[in-house]
Amino acid sequence: MLQSIWAYRYFIFTSIKNELKARFLRSKLGAVWMIIHPLMQVLIYAVILSEVLSAKLQGVTSKYGYALYLLAGMLFWTLFSETVGKCVTLFVDNGNLMRKIAFPRICLPIIAAGTALVNNLLLAAAIFGVFAVLGHFPGAQVVWLPMLMLLTLLLAMSVGIFLGVLNVFMRDIGQIVPVVLNALFWLTPIVYSLNALPERFQRWFGLNPLYSLVTSYQSVLVYGNPPLWADLGRLLLAALVMSVMAMIVFRRSSAEMVDAL
């Protein structure tokens, strides 16, 4: 698979470029739309919830502390949810392409993940611009942000590919995943701090596997602290195991997927 990805690297890069172009063809604002939607969502949450939650953000002295906290969490969530969402419907949406053209099927999730990563990098640039306007400048710990983004991408791809293969044979998966993602968004401390919850719930919400990732984003971008290395190490191991399992399922089901599509 790695040899196939390298051999078709120009096909992958061109496909990512063409997908980004096609999305905003005839659009006046172009790539700006990729960052408007998440930023508007952050603005809505910040306006509605900041008065309720901002006072409970420990260690943030800025009066825009809640907005900063929310922007950091949304940067993580946008990359994770977009990658999973793309991979789940990927094989079904590209059924005609898989039947008619001979190419390594693994290129499809790589293209989807690459597109999501480019979108997230543009969003990150916009968020850093907002940080500067609000007078907040992340410290030296921000150098760990690329590593956190890659770990997020690895986890999202492993989950998305596995569910994408299942979705070919059980189309209900494509309907269930958006519901689960919506629930997972509220079970992850993105629009609230874990400290704002009653103590009896904090331990249970802390068991969320995404907790260490989103908290690490918030630590390096808002608080200037290092990531949660111990928790991230366990999450990386789990992501690697899941990615191996996803690749095994993908390879064994590749021929059957074409027939099912």
Rank of each mutant, 00 (worst) to 15 (best):
A230S: 15
V214Q: 06
A124E: 06
L232C: 11
F185Q: 04
S62I: 02
L122H: 06
A183M: 15
N167T: 05
I48M: 13
N94H: 14
Y223H: 13
G160K: 04
G139E: 09
F131V: 03
D93P: 04
R200M: 10
C107I: 02
A156F: 01
N208D: 13
E256S: 13
L70G: 04
Y223V: 03
V42S: 08
V222Y: 04
T215F: 01
Q175N: 15
S253D: 02
F128L: 12
L236T: 15
S212Q: 10
S4N: 13
I190K: 09
F80M: 13
Y8V: 01
V191F: 05
G139L: 07
F103C: 04
F201W: 14
A72S: 10
S254M: 07
Q218A: 04
S193M: 02
L181C: 10
V168E: 01
L228E: 13
V241S: 13
D231V: 10
L71C: 07
L181Q: 11
G164M: 03
K17I: 10
V159M: 12
E82A: 14
L68H: 04
K56L: 10
P198F: 00
L75N: 04
V179S: 04
V143Y: 11
P38S: 08
L148T: 08
Y69G: 08
I12W: 05
F91G: 06
C87V: 11
H37N: 14
V32C: 12
A102V: 14
A238V: 12
I176A: 12
A246C: 11
M149A: 13
A239E: 01
M149D: 07
S81Q: 13
T115G: 11
T83A: 10
M147G: 14
L187R: 05
A22F: 09
Y10H: 15
M149Y: 08
A132G: 00
V179C: 00
T89Y: 02
V118F: 12
P226A: 02
S216W: 05
V32A: 15
L148W: 09
Y69R: 08
L29D: 09
F80K: 05
L29T: 09
S158G: 07
N208E: 11
D259A: 14
V130R: 08
I176V: 04
L43F: 07
G164D: 05
S216E: 04
Y217W: 03
N96W: 06
F103L: 07
L181R: 02
I127W: 02
V142N: 06
V133R: 00
L121C: 08
F24R: 05
W144H: 14
L240Q: 10
Y45C: 04
N96G: 15
A125D: 03
L123P: 04
S81N: 13
L181F: 06
G160R: 00
G224S: 06
G139D: 12
N119S: 15
G224E: 01
A46I: 04
V249Y: 08
I12Q: 00
A125V: 13
I5V: 15
Y217D: 03
N94V: 02
A22G: 14
S4P: 03
A55S: 13
D231I: 00
F128E: 00
A72D: 00
M34A: 12
L75Y: 02
G73D: 01
Y66C: 03
T83M: 06
H37P: 03
L123E: 05
L240F: 07
Q202K: 05
G73V: 10
A55Y: 00
